[in-house]
């Protein structure tokens, strides 16, 4: 199976989110369909991709990046037939394709979910200590004020949390919405750092194992 928007489909690349240089024609056609302005088309493509990933995860479809690539491939394949006559927002077509994939996955249920059988290409759940060690490391990489901020932000729960966030926003002289945005961005980066670190740990362990074998 050839990923039309990747250089080549490699099962080992499933769900890695690696952006490979696409071959020209089919992918260019897709961009052209999304918007005649290539830059705008690229932005639209990224939004569609991000949205598809969130839809799949929300619908319980594991390995969302793989199925997102699958959805995009299906659209690219149908493009020669639909391009000329299609009326409306292309996002709607992607949505239809995504719905089909979710339904197919539901019928299999069987859809290899993480709690049952791990999809091919996914690593087994990392031990908790890896997440903990990696969080320590990634927190240390943050400037002290950001470290303070992210830990403070996540301290309380329920009504206390609301009050605490209001206090934090007052102290920083920003709105509560801006506080929330700031916390979200920090958290996203921290989570990415932890994931990279866990991945790195896993690879190191595999290397050590293969050396000892």
């Amino acid at each position: 199976m050839q990923r039309l928007h990747n250089t080549s489909f490699d099962p080992q690349n499933r769900g890695t989110g690696k952006k490979l240089t696409p071959p020209k024609e089919p992918f260019d056609e897709l961009l052209q369909w999304l918007d005649p302005d290539r830059e705008k088309a690229g932005q639209r493509y990224e939004v569609i991709r991000a949205g598809l990933i969130r839809i799949f995860v929300s619908k319980g479809v594991s390995d969302a990046e793989y199925y997102t690539d699958e959805a995009i491939d299906r659209v690219i394949k149908r493009l020669p037939e639909i391009q000329a006559g299609y009326v409306g927002d292309p996002a709607r077509y992607f949505h239809g394709v995504a719905r089909n994939i979710v339904m197919e996955a539901g019928r299999r249920r069987e859809v290899p979910t993480a709690t049952e059988v791990l999809p091919q290409g996914l690593q087994p759940e990392p031990p908790r200590s890896d997440t903990s060690e990696c969080l320590t490391k990634c927190l240390q990489e943050l400037p002290p004020d950001k470290q303070e901020f992210i830990l403070d932000y996540h301290l309380y729960q329920g009504h206390d949390k609301v009050v605490h966030h209001r206090e934090m926003a007052n102290e920083l002289s920003i709105s509560e919405g801006a506080l929330r945005t700031r916390a979200h961005h920090l958290r996203v980066n921290l989570e990415k750092c932890v994931l990279r670190c866990i991945d790195h740990h896993g690879k190191n362990k595999n290397t050590l194992q293969s050396h000892s074998n």
Binding site: G60, S62, P126, T131, L135, D152, L190, E191, V194, L195
Partner: peptide, 22 residues
């Protein structure tokens, strides 16, 4: 739904660690 996915479970692991650390 969300938590049957590897992505969702990873998020829960990360969140648990973060809240516990805080």
């Amino acid at each position: 739904s969300y938590l049957t996915t590897a992505e969702g479970q990873q998020k829960v692991r990360f969140t648990s660690e973060l809240l516990e650390r805080a």
